[in-house]
Design a protein around this nucleic acid. Structure first.
Lengths: 229, 229
DNA sequence: AGCATATTCCAATCATCTTTGGAATATTGT
DNA sequence: ACAATATTCCAAAGATGATTGGAATATGCT
């Protein structure tokens, strides 16, 4: 009887640990970050995360077994997506806790992203308010597919990789008086920090959207889809 | 240069995964649940989780290395505690996601806790409101040490294990008109569900506090400490 | 100093996870 | 039916993690 309860308790925690195990691997965390931008095919994910396809498939299978992602087939292609928007929140909490509690993690994020606080992160609420005013241009520097899957309404899209090439054209296109706020995949993505620095070097005042699109989305702010800005 | 960025990204995700790895084991999740009640010694934790002491120590060490718990020595004893209240929230999110997304997990919680919805869970806000009115008695059925470390002000304390023995005395002591709301360690603890069922069988209307003390605490509601109710 | 107690360390075993290249499978279009 | 393509499956190897009993360490008490 007592053993029975204990066995049931153990079985329950065993189940909980299935989700924990899914989060216990850097490659899987990166895949989850990518999927937070929208659904993607195995091959795309493999390329974006610089992983072998067979490994990507195996990790996605593990994530699916833990209930964190789901997939659907479209012909020969298989699209994966987060099973639930809570998953993105969970991953972000893991990341944030690591960054706050582990000195090495904080160092690693700083080494990858640089000093983000110097880029004067703008709160999503503040940006939403200023967007109505019209004195701000929002810049989305993620890959095209991610922009299409969901972006801030009115955001100008330039891919991170092409920013340098298009800097002159872009800054000419944007009204000189407008401040620029750039965003990307989220708090631990380099694209927007890079972009803000590039714009500033080019003499344009620019700031970072704090938390990227996930924070915006989670706050229930509007999202536009499709390739037209 | 590109390799450099990639290496830094990998290093960052490696760091994030340290937290994930800490959550990847049922024993550690159980320890975190216990520590969410307040600080505890290694031996106590080992007993409460039915683990060997050496293993408990090893798992606590792993949790500390992931920044999830901290310890402080008091003479020969070492007390462990959660490093941060966010840790409890993270663990609960893992559990909830498992319970929602994994059929086996849902089954396992049901097997351990029984049908909780039949116990008419009371929202913490609702309880707080009704507490002011005074027409409700709150019952804490956790171990004495956990009650002492923090309980709902005015809660009557009876240990889970002694509930059956003290049922008659207890129900006699409580005003007959008052509803009873029982709580324990949280959403995945059996103590309060057991207690509610026992009280109902004894003819007393009783309900469950939804989310137990962690939800109460996280809502910023008042907490009392010490052994006096 | 010597003893008792709580915790940690250690070594060893067993189990599980990661990653890879290549084969197998499923689907579409010809 | 066949070829082309995207994905999954598989086997194997190396790496990492879990758990244990017992030894070692640290602290307090007499």
């Amino acid at each position: 009887m007592v053993d029975d309860t204990r066995a049931r308790k153990a079985a329950m925690y065993e189940q909980f640990a299935r989700v924990g195990k899914a989060l216990a691997n850097p490659a899987r965390l990166e895949l989850l970050d990518l999927l937070a931008q929208g659904e993607r095919r195995v091959e795309e994910l493999a390329q974006a995360a610089a992983m072998k396809i067979s490994n990507t498939s195996a990790q996605l299978k593990a994530l699916a077994a833990a209930g964190l992602v789901s997939s659907c087939r479209d012909g020969v292609r298989v699209y994966y997506r987060l099973a639930d928007e809570q998953v993105a929140a969970l991953v972000e909490q893991v990341q944030r806790l690591a960054a706050v509690r582990l000195a090495d993690a904080e160092r690693a994020t700083e080494a990858y992203l640089g000093d983000v606080s110097a880029l004067e992160p703008v709160d999503h609420d503040e940006l939403a308010r200023r967007l109505d005013g019209g004195e701000v241009v929002v810049l989305d520097v993620r890959p095209a597919a991610e922009y299409a899957a969901g972006h801030i309404p009115g955001a100008v899209h330039v891919e991170h990789g092409e920013l340098t090439a298009q800097l002159a054209e872009l800054t000419a296109r944007l009204p000189e008086s407008a401040d620029i706020v750039a965003y990307c995949r989220g708090r631990y993505c380099v694209f927007a920090p890079d972009a803000v620095r590039a714009l500033r070097e080019h003499g344009r005042p620019a700031r970072l959207l704090d938390g990227g699109i996930p924070a915006w989305r989670r706050a229930g702010l509007p999202i536009a889809t499709g390739t037209r800005s």
